[in-house]
Design a protein around this nucleic acid. Structure first.
Length: 510
RNA sequence: GAUCCCGUAGCUCAGUCGGUAGAGCACUUGACUUUUAAUCAAGGAGUCAUGGGUUCGAGUCCCAUCGGGAUCACCA
């Protein structure tokens, strides 16, 4: 234990010896919050120059002591609660209750109270002569003693921060410390929750049913990624944590629900970086009798609503890095082929595989022998186009080979009715007119098996039960998936997924 | 998985050419009855990530390991 930790344990012992419980069981009734008092305190100056306090004349608030400033027989502290910070003012004679021999001020407050301790205080609001709204404390009580020193972050009048607690490793491992000493980061998580609540409200109003589908799956279908594998003891069988829930949600459309959505975590056993965490949140929704054009309209409405909900002024614009993104629809709709033509001058529709390979070699795009034409087009798109799509853009009509679960295009041979939504140069959503022809679906799975045989590790596995469901009949359906963490990054202007997850995955400490 | 950078007091960081450790905040003791990055005086605090190696001598140079970050690959 460090010197400071030992001292805090001694303080704890001394408090107990003085008959003060550092961890009392009974509740402390809070009647006011720091930010409310600071914002709403009112006083009037009478004709004789004295001040008359108009509100918060008796308050009880609770929180952590974040700073102390001793001034002889008086003392100032900063109390931080969930709403913000407020200054406390204490006077020796009042804290001692008029008893000259009381240890309360000189020992308990000045010596045994440490930064980070939770206290409850009762008193009245006032304005100090330097103008700061404060609470004049008449009673105080320990609510919980802190046995480890928090990092001390200081801020001056101009808002400059000193000794900022910035080490990402410490911040992510000890998010409780991070959010205590860097309370401004709480706003990111509050916005994230607001975003999710807005999405739920929007989908509920559309009449969709929120559902839960299996996280533990015998076949990891619906996407192309390496799964986490575990073992069920009683059944003595391998089981996978889901990489997607798409095939289960479609089974529910087969079951007769008009629209379903699931907002939950997926698990992919892949590399980690600033846009990937092994567990991440997805929104998927599926609506019967609709197509991908309908989904584009709905997506525009949903994003506009999220932007309005997260901006205090109700604006539809969001600043992301260098750019200001306009979320009010309609968004630009661009076919994949047109997009590539526009940004590279390359006509991928008429080009054959050899020409595409040649283009990739010339432009230093990494390819390998297993890649077919569709995959090459995807690589060119990723390298040359994706990063340019800053304002929300629907990229539509993909080659059939890249989309094994998507309905063939109603009028364009070789393409499917699929779109991806790009914002700020990154994909945030992926949608289809869902393939509901069971015979076509079986052939697509078989194509996937052939790709797997050619060495494509991302190819999808056959799911016989899903095919059986389609054979019973699935109505025409539109479906879409969004990466919730990516959306949270976008709407909170963060470049790392770890900043929008409370507890990002970390290697164990030694 | 690959490459590069980083790891020194509770926190943020210095540490020169290889000569056994420094600052600010925090902490301790004292002063101060409206301070606010409070101030003033004095003081304590370190297995320099871990393990090896080179050297008379390693925070510093070399190797390995652990942890973090960035870039890449894979993916959303």
């Amino acid at each position: 234990m460090t010197e400071q930790e030992l001292l805090r344990r001694e303080s704890l012992q001394k408090l107990r010896e003085l008959g003060i419980d550092p961890y009392p069981a009974e509740m402390f009734e809070v009647t006011a919050h720091a930010a409310d008092i600071v914002q709403n305190y009112r006083e009037e100056v009478l004709e004789d120059g004295t001040k008359n306090r108009l509100n918060y004349t008796s308050v009880a608030l609770a929180g952590r002591i974040m700073a102390t400033r001793e001034a002889g027989k008086a003392m100032f502290m900063n109390l931080q609660d969930s709403s913000g910070r407020i200054q406390l003012y204490m006077r020796r004679e009042e804290i001692n209750g008029g008893d000259e021999n009381s240890p309360m001020f000189d020992t308990v407050v000045k010596k045994l109270l440490d930064l980070g301790d939770y206290v409850g205080v009762k008193g009245f609001a006032f304005r100090t002569k330097t103008g700061e709204v404060s609470v004049h404390v008449q009673e105080f009580k320990f609510l919980s003693k802190s046995l480890r020193p928090l990092p001390v972050v200081k801020k001056d009048n101009e808002g400059h921060i000193y000794d900022a607690f910035t080490d990402p490793e410490l911040r992510y491992r000890m998010r409780y410390v991070d959010l205590t000493v860097n309370p401004e980061f709480r706003e990111i998580f509050i916005k994230r929750t607001k975003m999710i609540k807005t999405i739920r409200a929007f989908l509920d109003e559309l009449g969709l049913l929120e559902v839960e589908t299996p996280i533990l799956q015998p076949i990891h279908g619906g996407a192309a990624a390496r799964p986490f594998k575990t073992h069920h003891n009683a059944l003595d069988m391998p089981i996978y944590m889901r990489i997607a829930n798409e095939l289960y949600l479609k089974r529910l459309i087969v079951a007769g629900f008009d629209g379903v959505y699931e907002l939950s975590k997926m698990f992919r056993n892949e590399g980690m970086d600033r846009t990937h965490n092994p567990e991440f949140s997805m929104l998927e929704f599926y609506v019967a009798y609709k197509d991908y054009y309908w989904l584009m309209d709905v997506t525009e409405q949903m994003f506009e609503r999220i932007a309005r909900a997260l901006n205090s002024d109700g604006s539809t614009k969001v600043t992301v890095g260098e750019h200001e993104i306009e979320f009010a629809g309609p968004y630009k709709r661009l076919t994949m082929f047109d997009a590539i033509q526009q940004f590279t001058g390359l006509n991928v529709e008429t080009a054959d595989e050899a020409e595409l390979r040649n283009y990739c070699r010339q432009h230093h795009i990494e390819i390998d022998a297993t890649m077919g034409k569709a995959k090459l087009i995807d690589e060119i798109f990723g390298e040359k186009v994706e990063g340019n799509l800053i304002q929300p853009t629907f990229l539509i009509d993909y080659p059939v080979e890249m989309s094994p679960l998507t309905k063939k295009h109603r009028s364009k041979p070789g393409l499917v009715e699929r779109f991806e939504l790009f914002v700020n140069g990154k994909e945030v959503g992926n949608a289809y007119s869902e393939l509901n022809d069971p015979i076509d679906q079986r052939e697509r799975f078989e194509d996937q098996l052939r790709l797997a045989a050619r060495g494509d590790e991302e190819a999808m596995a056959m799911d016989e039960d899903f095919l059986r469901a389609l054979e019973y009949g699935m109505p025409p359906t539109a479906g879409i998936g969004f990466g919730i963490d990516r959306l949270a990054m976008l709407f909170t202007n963060q470049t790392s997924i770890q900043e929008v997850l409370f507890f990002p995955q970390m290697r164990p400490e030694v």
